[in-house]
Design a protein around this nucleic acid. Structure first.
Lengths: 152, 152
DNA sequence: TTGCATTTGAGAATCACTCTCAATAAAGTC
DNA sequence: GACTTTATTGAGAGTGATTCTCAAATGCAA
């Protein structure tokens, strides 16, 4: 409860920094993303929060992405997925199912993350690139799709 | 030269496996991707190989992706980038510039890759996910964009 | 409440990409 | 080479996720 209120306050602050109000519709988006616990496509988001309309949802997701509240994930030709930004949820990566497209959050242990950051910093320095964040996607087949395939 | 011929032969084999010919236009695409040495958007590909037409290029890239010859990279709302598949070039990752969108290939040392694979396998096992490949994108600012920013 | 600025909603517009189908090139046969 | 058959190409129409437009609704200050 307290954590939930803190989250909303943090979102309100981040929106305020770019002169945006934390309206009812925007709160509904954040609640849906929190409730799902997994990145949602826009149609899935509208199912979770039926009061939202498509155009406003897209507009608000885009604005909240700029505000550092939402992250947009793109993995192909179909709908993008949206989740809360890492600043609100913590650094993590994704398992992406090639079958159904579902995305699942995972974390690596600190030591491995440190090794990665060190490696990227070293590589980046060589080519004059200033690294900010990294994003690891593991592609494969989820349990549900594996079951479906063997059933066929 | 020999390496170049071997590459083309390997591409021809991979296309043959799905009953596709290695036509002049398809060779031009592969040559352009080899020549660029960095992932290309479709407009950039057409610049490199002006004899190609848009619809055929898209159709052939899509088919060659299925054949395991080409990989399609998606990083936002604009054009996707295309490069030769890892089976032809070796496993690598990408530095992606937030400023201009340019993508640069990088490799991690074997030991770190092994650690990552082991970590992903462990995580995946826990959730019943069968990992196949992984893809690491490092987002940041390239040298050219950093120079432009400080010039402003 | 009254006024002013921001946000919303419905639908039109955009644009990367895919599809269609007649014209063309490739591969095999003689 | 000429002929047949099959696969590919090119130009433009179509698709669909996302963005834009603008009048109506809402939020906020006094």
């Amino acid at each position: 409860m307290a954590a939930h209120d803190e989250l909303h306050q943090e979102v309100r602050d981040r929106l305020g920094r770019i002169d945006q109000l934390y309206t009812r519709g925007r709160q509904a988006i954040v609640d849906a993303l929190v409730g799902a616990g997994t990145p949602l496509t826009l149609p899935a988001l509208l199912e979770q929060a039926p009061d939202l309309t498509q155009s406003s949802a897209y507009r608000n997701l885009s604005m909240m992405e700029q505000a550092g509240v939402v992250r947009r994930l793109v993995h192909g030709n179909d709908h993008a997925h949206y989740e809360l930004a890492e600043g609100l949820t913590g650094h993590h990566h994704h398992l992406v199912c090639r079958g159904c497209g579902v995305i699942r959050d995972v974390t690596l242990d600190r030591q491995l993350e440190r090794s990665l950051d060190a490696a990227f910093s070293r590589i980046a320095l060589d080519v004059g690139f200033r690294p900010e964040t990294h994003d690891i996607d593991v592609y494969g087949i989820c349990a549900d799709c594996a079951a479906d395939c063997s059933a066929d």
